[in-house]
Nucleic acid binder design. Sequence first.
DNA 1: AACACCTGTGTTTTT
DNA 2: CACAGGTGTT
Length: 727
Amino acid sequence: MNTNRLLANLNPEQREAVTLPTGPALVLAGAGSGKTRVLVHRIAWRIETEDTPPQSVLAVTFTNKAAREMRARVLTLVGPRAQSMWLGTFHSMAYRILSRHAREAGLRPDFTILDEDDQRRLIRQLIRERQWDEREFPPALAQWYINQKKDAGMRASQVPDGVGREDRALRDLYQGYEMKLRSLGAADFAELLFCCHDLWQKQPALLESYQARFREILVDEFQDTNTLQYLWFRTLTGTSGNPFVVGDDDQAIYGWRGGRVEHVLRFPKDFEGTRVIRLEQNYRSSGAILSAANALIAHNPSRLGKTLWTASETGERPVYFTADDELEEADYIVTRIQQALSGGQPAGTIAILYRSNAQSRVIEESLVRHEIAYRIYGGVRFFERSEIKDTLAYLRLMTDPENDSAFERVFNVPTRGLGDRTFERVREHARQEGRSLAASALAIAQPKAVSADRSARALRGFLELLADMREAIRPLNLAGQVERVIALSRLAEFYQTDDPLRAETRIESLAELVNAAAGYEPDPEMESTPAEFSGLMAFLGQMALATEPESRPGKSDEIQLMSLHAAKGLEFHTVFITGLEEGLLPHSRATETAGGLEEERRLFYVGITRAERQLYLTRARRRRLHGHYIDTLPSRFLLEIPADQLESGEPRIVTRTARSRVQHRFPNTDPGLPVTIGQRVRHPRFGEGVVLSHEGSGDHCRIHVRFEGSGAKWLLWDQAHLETLES
DNA sequence: AACACCTGTGTTTTT
DNA sequence: CACAGGTGTT
């Protein structure tokens, strides 16, 4: 076997890490030092040279996206037999394990995973049951409290006695929440790890079987692991596994979500004989960009200490530009982008980064005015959209008719004459009998002698609908089932009447869900129970842990817009970091907490180190915030980069008159298109708007329009009946 | 149950 | 300012 191939393009440190003998290993990998490459090659190396069976490999990443990418790269190196390794997020790994032992872990066999929304709804319910004042105990705060404890690996019983009344109340609520979850047999995200961990503690033999199986355990982005994840990982690794973790303390940016950099320091203490390897050569950025990054991060007192160097040329200094306001800032950025694009630079190599998503709006508007295509990451996530959750709830009721949260969700969606009173009746019955909502509904709906009870009839209608649906989809394939459930539930019609402004976008999402089902490939490792709807069950399980449908290829001809957090792990030729102002970066809320400032600095550091060749730092003297303008101060972080390492951007590149001029030109870029980017259009219902972008061409193309008042929507040209307007 | 009004909120994000 | 979510009215 040609193993040299695996080492050919690695530097000595990378090679050392990849070829380390068994035993715990910690790789401190600076930004752009080939972290993922080391991880991927390590896996390949173990499989190819040590004859490690792929199924004894478990690799954990921070996001699904990173997992997909890593899997693809390992497969390229090792071939299809690597398919059998376990590679995914902490949560998806725990879910895989739990779904084989659900009952033993105290969960329903086909348990639901509650997302943030479901969780908040449950907590609100508990607060109301206790008749607490929701202003004194905001559900969001309680939720934050509970998740924080869970992320720290604490059950309610382990939370130390608080001093105040409020502390005790919150702890009590946490306890109530735990009981509620257990009675539902459901799990929230943290619970997946927690439950799995508890199960291992309860059943040492089971733990041993997993320890025996997973000989190689690798963790990416180790600096962002929270305590619960760390405990889970440490338990699974035990004393015999070979942990291989990769991280960068300078890129720890999830402290607010429980991430603890300290785990990096703790690792060598918990795992005796840990070999530490540092990767300090940066292959990504030019010398000038790297110097700025190094100068900035040197201001963080608590660091493991690591200085990145590069063999690349110095390149151009980062440019710093101060605009009068956020409009000018946006126009400056767009002007620079136009210059780059006209010089032949592909749009996909340019990124605009910001601290908070709200900042994107002004920039988007400027991009639209200048007819530049862009793609924005973040915002409302696919699986959090209400239409998706409604549909998933119906689907869940197909596989698990007694699922209370799904039942509650679609009880009166679409409206079918079932109001709060009926629901309370059902819930009360369920509480008394200890049955599920569906079973109680059935009992209540029984026709009593001569019953003209309207709600009982409506209830029967609902139950019959579910039963009919179950029959109707039985013989269909997965995509067909999803499609049929959407049709039979009449959700589309409901959205149309409920909120016509959003109906079109919502129906588009539903179509995308059907697509996701059509493209779904079952996890071969998952227990394939012969139960009916087992395919649907597996699909729902996977969807609960997903954020985006998989079929969304990024286009290379669009400018990339995203938050600094979302940019982690990515790289771009040209990067704009915007809003370098006190209060924004560092964020005002972050300066209050201990360590918050350091985390903000790391966030800026992450942003800087995304840039390969060109970096722009921009700021506005005054910025509109919550309605009115406030004067700003430059970010303190700017002063931490020596002035001679920055270039001053040309002021006033764009004038207001230039802005209004561009607004009136509409060159037709694509002759196949019925409209042009930037053109004004009128929709029979939504009114007037501006065309932002398009997909496809001809009469069947989809176009993206920002309407005045009702926001941006995707429309099908041949169905939307748009009227084009002269500007 | 549907609609109009009101009020609070407004970081980052994954799962 | 802009929007979501909740409350109150019909």
